[in-house]
Every structure is written in structure tokens, then in C-alpha cells.
Design a protein around this nucleic acid. Structure first.
Length: 221
DNA sequence: ATCCCGAGGG
DNA sequence: CCCTCTGGAT
């Protein structure tokens, strides 16, 4: 909603800044934890990461990329074989169809390359803003938006920065709170912290460096 | 709002 | 059993 007062917005900016400062000290070397060697491999790994841990994605991608290493190979993949290679990541029928379909579209419309704009990337099947933001930021160094996955949404809500549930609305609220150069730093470190401390089910507020400034910490413990 | 979907934890 | 994991399309 557009009912945010200037003082509330100012508080959110300071909150976001302090959160990022502390998490940067805690996770100084945080990076994308998916294994890949090219933009298309990053795109495929990111599609596979939907509702699945990156650790599990990294278990299937070595064999997957050995068999289908690039856009052309993936565009011509046998669908059943592709499904079996990625089966353990879940949603494997949709993911296989989307991976092959995205690579076929890249062959036909994008010169066999992974496109480098939000508009083009989100035309690919199985690619919306979250996946596109990851590819743009880590594959090409382009800060197009804030990557909002399940962790970023959960922590941003707990920290009092948004009450939205829709990831696109969460992203729209987060973007003005941070300098563009910090957008991906924000997402990466919230993901790290969400995995290790601020877990969905049983958050470890007692061991959290953000507890004193987190509105949700008092209620949880 | 619902579906896709497997694996691991509690 | 239930919930969660770097979502997206219908």
C-alpha cells in the first residue's frame, strides 16, 4: 500500500542499512552458492533451485552439464533424459520443460545467448523476476532489482521492512531502501542468514546478531 | 487459489 | 504426520 509516511520510510532505510552492515560483518565472503561455469549454467541452476536447496541443485548439475553443457545441447535435449537428470530437485517435469524451452527460445530469438535484460529474460519459460535478478546480478553484474526468494521475503517481513506477501511487491518496497550497488549484497546475506539462523520453522533469535533491532525477535525467542 | 514435486527434518 | 527448501504458470 501507498500509506507509508516519510518517518516510517526513514526508519526502514536506517533499519536496512544497519541490518546489511551487521550481516556483511557476519558473512563477509557470501556469494551465490550455486555451481556453474557460464551464464546458461547459472540460469539452469537457478531454475532448478525453485523450492529446493542449492546443495541439492549442486548434486545434479555436474552430470547435467556434462551431458548438456551449453544452450545448443540443452535446446536439443531428450526430455525424458533431462527429467531423470534433475528428478531429485522436485517439480522435475515443469523444470525440464522450462529449461529446454528456455534454451530453444534463446536459440531462436536471442542468438543462442542468455539475454541480459529483465524484459528478455522474463520472456523465457520458467523465468520470472527472482530468477532473472539472480542471472543478471551474478552472471552479468547488472543490478536490475532485488532478488526476493522465500528467505528474503521472510526475513524482510520479520525485520519490519514490509508486510507484503507477494514477492514482486516485497521487491518494490525493498528497492528504495538500499543503494542499487547493495541490492544483491542484501539478498545474498539475507539468504545466508535465513538458512543458518533466521529459519522459517524455528528461528534462533538467541544467537542472532539482529535480535535487538528485530520486531519479530521478542515474540519468537 | 492451486498445481507442480522430491528429499530431509522435526 | 507436517513443514520447508534461493518459484513460476495457470
Amino acid at each position: 500500500m501507498a500509506g507509508t509516511s516519510p518517518s516510517q520510510q526513514s526508519w526502514k532505510q536506517q533499519q536496512a542499512s544497519e541490518v546489511l552492515n551487521r550481516l556483511t560483518r557476519l558473512y563477509p565472503d557470501a556469494t551465490c552458492s550455486l555451481t556453474y561455469e557460464s551464464p546458461v549454467q547459472l540460469l539452469v541452476a537457478t531454475i532448478l533451485s525453485a523450492q529446493c536447496t542449492d546443495e541439492r541443485v549442486n548434486k545434479v548439475t555436474p552430470a547435467l552439464f556434462a551431458r548438456y553443457p551449453d544452450v545448443a545441447a540443452l535446446a536439443g535435449a531428450n526430455l525424458g533424459e533431462l527429467e531423470q537428470l534433475i528428478r531429485s530437485t522436485g517439480f522435475y517435469r515443469n523444470k525440464a520443460k522450462n529449461i529446454r524451452g528456455a534454451c530453444q527460445m534463446m536459440m531462436e530469438r536471442f542468438d543462442g545467448q542468455v539475454p541480459q535484460t529483465m524484459d528478455a529474460l522474463t520472456q523465457l519459460p520458467g523465468v520470472a523476476r527472482k530468477t532473472a535478478n539472480v542471472v543478471l546480478a551474478h552472471g552479468f553484474g547488472i543490478n536490475a532489482g532485488v532478488t526476493v526468494d522465500t528467505h528474503v521475503k521472510r526475513l524482510s517481513r520479520r525485520l519490519g521492512l514490509t508486510v507484503e506477501d507477494n514477492p514482486v511487491k516485497v521487491e518494490r518496497e525493498l528497492m528504495p531502501l538500499l543503494p542499487k550497488a547493495d541490492w544483491e549484497n542484501w539478498s545474498i546475506r539475507l539468504i545466508y542468514h535465513g538458512r543458518a539462523v533466521c529459519k522459517a520453522r524455528k528461528p534462533d533469535c538467541g544467537g542472532c546478531v539482529l535480535a535487538d533491532l528485530c520486531p519479530a525477535a521478542a515474540e519468537m525467542g
